[in-house]
Amino acid sequence: MLDVQDLTVVYQDDRGRDVPLVEDISFTVLPREVLCIVGEAGSGKSVTMLAVMGLLPPELHITSGSIRYRGEELVGMPEKRRRALRGKEMGMVFQDPMTALNPVKSVGSQIGRALSVHNRRLAWGDRDQRVAELLASVGVPQPKRRSRLYPHEWSGGMRQRAVIAMAIANSPSLLVADEPTTALDTTVQAQVMEALETARETSDAAMVMITHDLALVAQVADRVAIMYSGSFVETGSVYEIFDSAQHPYTKGLLASILTEYSDTNAAFAIPGSPPAPSQRPEGCAFAPRCTSAGKDAACLERPALLPMPGSGERQRAAACHHPGTELLNAPYAAPAAERAGAR
């Protein structure tokens, strides 16, 4: 469905130098598969998928790499062809529905626009009926009446449902969801994710979800890619990542989950902060925060994302000179999959 190889996206600093925001990113998504990209804020998750969707801001540029959708190269594709794919074959649920929706147009007219752009022969009556069906499919009550309302008249959770309805309007084969439950309370998060999963199953789509919610990842993902400072540091199936993480950064993220299995009342916090893109160390980007192996001489060299021994066709990989190393003082009271409530 989607094949990204060696993708690098850069911006120019004040001195005119190219600074990579994401570097040498590679991953694939199979039909009907759910891939979750996980990492701290600023790790490059959204930039990666904006590049895939052809929605990078003007100051960012793809300098190398390949992005293929169903075998068709997207890098360098004419914008007219991109527009034909975007919204029809590839749908995106943006992080903030209030900024994704036009405040001066009704919600229904915006969803209808997503339909008519890709089907100009669609009659107005049929379009309005389809809008109501889409809103109903994502759990919006009284869809015909609510479709005439404006975004500010909808709650946050309902606006997110509207954005999901817009993303699936043309039954895309690939959905990209950029932190779809951010700033929503727990109950509404569950409702929105249920609506998103129902929508994905209805259109039989694959999905790439960007998130930092590991408990959510455990419930919905087939495969997981852990991203740190612009690069993937570990990839594998959801079971491999949660049950036997290899990279210390992944272990630190898992240790931060507080559940009934936790042996402490305080969440674990990885020491330090991610480096700014222009200030990344030349070696392992995580080394300054790694409390156990970060001072090893090998960590002065950048580790490659290499397959783990015994990995199958969909290779499990980790970018670490000491895979399996744990961060010191990180609590591991029970298997991570149990603590996160994995399916």
Rank of each mutant, 00 (worst) to 15 (best):
His212Arg: 13
Arg32Asp: 04
Gln95Phe: 09
Ala169Cys: 06
Arg302Ala: 14
Thr186Trp: 08
Ala269Phe: 13
Ala317Gln: 07
Val224Trp: 05
Ser203Pro: 10
Gly236Gln: 02
Arg289Thr: 09
Tyr11Thr: 06
Ser244Trp: 11
Ile37Lys: 04
Ser244Ala: 14
Ser155Thr: 10
Thr198Leu: 07
Lys45Asp: 06
Arg86Ser: 12
Thr291Trp: 10
Glu179Met: 14
Val117Pro: 03
Val29His: 04
Pro103Val: 10
Arg70Asp: 14
Asp18Gly: 01
Ala167Met: 09
Leu214Trp: 04
Val217Phe: 10
Ala293Gln: 05
Arg127Ala: 02
Thr259Gln: 13
Ala221Tyr: 02
Leu300Asp: 08
Phe94Glu: 02
Tyr332Gln: 14
Leu149His: 10
Asp96Leu: 12
Pro309Gly: 03
His321Thr: 12
Glu79Leu: 06
Leu115Glu: 02
Thr99Pro: 12
Ala285Leu: 05
Gln12Met: 04
Glu326Gly: 07
Pro323Lys: 01
Val140Ser: 00
Arg81Ser: 06
Leu2Ile: 03
Val93Ala: 06
Ala132Leu: 00
Ser66Val: 08
Gln110Asp: 07
Ala165Asp: 07
Ala114Gln: 08
Gln191Phe: 07
Gly71His: 05
Ala255Phe: 05
Ser311Gly: 03
Pro172Asp: 05
Val238Pro: 02
Arg159Met: 15
Pro277Lys: 04
Ala114Lys: 00
Met1Pro: 09
Cys299Ser: 05
Met166Val: 09
Val38Lys: 11
Val163Thr: 15
Val233Arg: 03
Gly39Gln: 08
Asp96Gly: 11
Ala318Met: 01
Val75Trp: 00
Gly108His: 00
Leu328Thr: 13
Ala206Met: 12
Ser116Asp: 10
Arg159Pro: 15
Met227Glu: 15
Ala245Cys: 05
Arg81Met: 11
Tyr69Ala: 06
Gly341Tyr: 10
Arg161Cys: 01
Phe94Thr: 01
Val224Arg: 06
Ala255Pro: 02
Asp243His: 08
Thr250Phe: 01
Glu79Ala: 08
Met308Ile: 10
Cys36Leu: 03
Ile111Val: 07
Phe94Tyr: 08
Ala267Asn: 15
Ala340Trp: 11
Leu101Ser: 12
Asp126Thr: 10
Ala190Trp: 09
Arg302Asp: 11
Glu194Thr: 15
Asn119Gln: 08
Val192Gln: 03
Glu79His: 04
